[in-house]
Write a protein that binds this DNA or RNA. Structure first.
Lengths: 149, 149
DNA sequence: CTGACTGCAAAATCTTTGCAAAGAC
DNA sequence: GTCTTTGCAAAGATTTTGCAGTCAG
């Protein structure tokens, strides 16, 4: 895994390249994603940052704007939950897909070479220039299955 | 492909089983999805129904309620577009996944046995009881690629 | 200094809900 | 008749935008 310092450098370079500014808020959000491995809604990030850093006033709009920025530049990625919004995570790890528990919302990550390869083949078959791809398996996780019975 | 009459019977039975009522509005929405092969947003369905059947007053809320009903009972299915809502289609066809053009929004359907099988294996590996799974490949369709250059 | 960034609140989207009237059975 | 459904408009939920002040470079 990349160190935070390196990630921060990368982010700063990105900002500079695009004549964007490095701000306390942007750093806090990046740091949050780095330190809190997992998937978070913009709202969650906003609330948790507010609690953790009461001295820095971070607005919800800034969280949205920064997450969009991070996603566009490939530093973060999101999974969509339909009407219920999106969850973001640091997107520097190896590409992976998700298993999502419909009961408790738990998210398990996985990576499957076979599926990745097939996806490329399918895109090629339809003369499609693949930019992104996502796979979600929704179901009941182990814990929730035993709870149910 | 199933005939409309048969589909309608199936729908009526479903309603009866759940002590729900068969209404003109519900039929119109079902019929719309049957006759208009493709993927539609609730808004689109609402507008098109309004135009096609000015004599029947169909409200947007009813479209939403009915689509939810149809999806819950497995007659329709939806693909999510993040914040930009969902698109619905008749869900009686064989399960399939989607290629989505990020430029023009075109949706191509495909089915791949290899991927389907791998998904099941992955679910099993994580002791996950799979309820549903979706795969989206986002990219540029053939037309939009040539437009770009 | 200049132009980008921020917070705030208002606006915009998309979806759901409350309720009285209408309709199915 | 009874109980579900409907349309309408209002309310919700999530996200985006306009703007004047603030801040990074």
């Amino acid at each position: 895994m990349i160190t935070y310092d390196l990630l921060l450098e990368q982010f700063k370079t990105l900002l500079k390249t695009n004549t964007l500014k490095f701000t306390k808020q942007r750093e806090l959000i990046l740091k949050f994603l780095y330190e809190n491995n997992g998937h978070y809604t913009p709202e969650e990030i906003y609330m948790l940052l507010k609690k953790a850093h009461p001295e820095v006033n971070v607005g919800i709009a800034t969280v949205y704007r920064t997450l969009t920025l991070l996603e566009d530049s490939g530093i973060a990625s999101s999974i969509s939950f339909g009407t219920q919004g999106k969850k973001y995570e640091l997107g520097l790890k190896k590409h992976h897909d998700h298993l999502i528990c419909s009961q408790c919302g738990a998210i398990i990550e996985f990576f499957d070479e076979t599926i990745e390869k097939r996806q490329e083949e399918i895109a090629k078959k339809f003369n499609f220039l693949m930019q992104d791809h996502t796979m979600k398996i929704v179901g009941l996780c182990e814990k929730c299955q035993s709870k149910q019975s």
